[in-house]
């Protein structure tokens, strides 16, 4: 297996507050990795550090063999990393179609973009119905679907998902997780999933990391984490 992403001893600050302490983790090509932890544990900062929106103050982020620690976000996206951020961040005054176009911002293969938009509409038929509607008028679940579809439009090698289940009905969450799995299987897209809903995340992931107060405290295969007593107590409510 090729190592796709590796964080080595990463320290990051969120404003003046140190959010990550010596974080080490790695993802291999084709894996689904889950990162679980409580509110404020540093999960989102980890993703933002990978994308270059937050810059690591020390340590290294290595992607596909290249050091991308100091790269700007647009160069990182160009290399195939795409994030569906927390809160979805739909462009509210762009139509559904335009939001999808923005996902393909770095691409210039017009024919393939058209095909991929149709593919997204097949995955999420509700978006096809709403294609002329402004993104801000969609419901929470639809916005999450749009955010994921927009990320698919970038044809990422590595897809970062930040709390896709947040604020959504259980049925919608299940649907979204199924599609995440499908994208992973059909396109061999590597997935880095950050979740508070540890139960769900550990069920679709291959390996998992547990984060507390900015530090990775535990890592193992997802089956073992699901069976782990401390994880059960802290994150699964058992």
């Amino acid at each position: 297996m090729t190592r796709l992403l590796e964080l080595k001893g990463v320290n990051s600050f969120y404003g003046n507050i140190q959010a990550l302490y010596d974080v080490n983790l790695h993802i291999d090509q084709g894996e689904i990795i889950t990162l679980i932890g409580a509110n404020g544990a540093g999960k989102s900062t980890t993703l933002m550090t990978v994308c270059g929106v937050v810059q690591a103050t020390s340590g290294r982020v290595v992607y596909n063999g290249d050091d991308i620690t100091r790269e700007s976000p647009n160069r990182i996206v160009a290399q195939g990393i795409c994030q569906v951020p927390e809160g979805r961040l739909i462009f509210p005054e762009l139509t559904v179609q335009e939001n999808l176009d923005m996902g393909a911002f770095m691409r210039s293969d017009k024919g393939a973009i058209k095909r991929d938009i149709e593919y997204c509409y097949d995955l999420f038929p509700i978006l096809a119905e709403r294609r002329r509607q402004e993104g801000g008028t969609l419901s929470g679940g639809e916005q999450q679907m749009l955010a994921i579809a927009r990320a698919i439009m970038a044809k990422p090698r590595l897809l970062l998902l930040d709390e896709p289940s947040m604020g959504l009905a259980p049925l919608v969450v299940r649907q979204i997780f199924e599609i995440v799995k499908k994208v992973n299987e059909e396109h061999n897209t590597t997935i880095f999933l950050v979740e508070q809903n540890a139960n769900l995340a550990l069920k679709i992931g291959h390996r998992g990391y547990v984060m507390e107060n900015g530090r990775v405290v535990l890592t193992d295969s997802c089956e073992k984490l699901l069976a782990d007593e401390s994880v059960k107590r802290a994150y699964l409510g058992l």
């Binding site: 994308c51 929106v53 700007s72 976000p73 647009n74 996206v77 160009a78 795409c82 994030q83 951020p85 961040l89 739909i90 462009f91 509210p92 005054e93 762009l94 335009e98 176009d101 923005m102 996902g103 911002f105 770095m106 927009r150 970038a154």
Partner: peptide, 19 residues
Amino acid sequence: KAMRATAQNRKMAMLVGIN
């Protein structure tokens, strides 16, 4: 389009690769 996207949400504009 990039200008509109940046005006609506700068962070997300970065994340779709807009300079």
